[in-house]
């Protein structure tokens, strides 16, 4: 038997907590996707070496406290306004990395104007968009992204399209705007998904570094408390119900722009 202290050596290290991730105990519920996404952002800041020149904009919602967990400079926005703060910041600090962290109530409901116009201007910012189809922090009310028939605290008999309209695919709408440089939809419900999401988050920041337009990573997420499910049950329900409505994968990728794209929308 070899001594454990012989094994614990820097050269044997295969995985460690990202430096940009704080030691604070997260307030998120068991099974929540926020913690995993935070980790992916922190790892990205480490790997790209941009922690010192990154400014995050936190939303209203459970992610409001993102600044307690990811160590970089942060601004705390009003509900939906994060892309406007990010615009002001990036325009005045163009050599810094600026990202917003927004939920679906924030981005797809109250903040549609701010996100649409930020992307339409092709702001060189990164948007991390957590879509769990519900207002988590305020107690599980219906969101614009709530699936048809889904029961929430403000649609207790299920989302009825004759009353509430349809689930909005905001990411597909944003993807149509010429200012969008990289738009992808990912999830973090299993190891494979987490790895793909990590690649997407990292790529989104790399795209920002190229200053070719807005990069958007939607993460289809669980809210086991709001959905009133167990963490594993929420993962299964998401796979069965959310993914068919919100299919995973890249929607726009101009990270290697084609010549005709460059002619139509020249790089700034």
């Amino acid at each position: 038997m070899s001594n454990i202290n012989d094994i614990i050596k820097p050269e044997n290290l295969v995985y460690k907590k990202a430096d940009a991730l704080s030691d604070n105990i997260m307030h998120y519920c068991p099974g929540c996707s926020h913690g995993t996404v935070h980790k992916l952002i922190a790892e990205t800041l480490d790997e790209l070496g941009i922690q010192d020149k990154t400014i995050g904009v936190s939303p209203v919602g459970c992610g409001v406290f993102a600044y307690n967990y990811i160590n970089c400079d942060w601004q705390q926005a009003a509900h939906g306004r994060a892309p406007a703060l990010a615009t002001g910041t990036k325009r005045l600090m163009p050599d810094h990395y600026v990202f917003t962290y927004q939920g679906d109530g924030d981005l797809a409901s109250i903040g549609t104007s701010e996100i649409m116009h930020a992307v339409n201007r092709g702001e060189n910012i990164t948007v991390i968009f957590i879509n769990n189809g519900i207002y988590g922090m305020t107690g599980g009310q219906m969101a614009p992204t709530t699936l048809v028939g889904m029961e929430t605290s403000s649609s207790p008999y299920g989302r009825d399209i004759s009353i509430h309209g349809y689930p909005i695919k905001i990411t597909e709408i944003l993807a149509q705007l010429p200012g969008a440089a990289y738009v992808t939809r990912q999830s973090v419900h299993n190891a494979t998904a987490v790895r793909k999401a990590k690649k997407a988050v990292k790529k989104a920041f790399e795209v920002q570094g190229k200053a070719i337009g807005t990069s958007i990573v939607e993460i289809v997420s669980t809210c086991s408390s709001g959905w009133k499910m167990t963490p594993t049950g929420a993962n299964e329900w998401m796979t069965e119900n959310m993914f068919p409505n919100y299919p995973l994968g890249d929607i726009v990728d101009k990270s290697k722009p084609k010549q005709e794209d460059l002619e139509q929308f020249p790089l700034k």
Partner: peptide, 26 residues
Amino acid sequence: MVFLQAESEVAAINMIYGGASCGKRV
């Protein structure tokens, strides 16, 4: 000096919030 026409007054004041956060005179 940066100049930007915002999409609304709501956005304009929040661009100010972002810029002011950076210690800039906005």
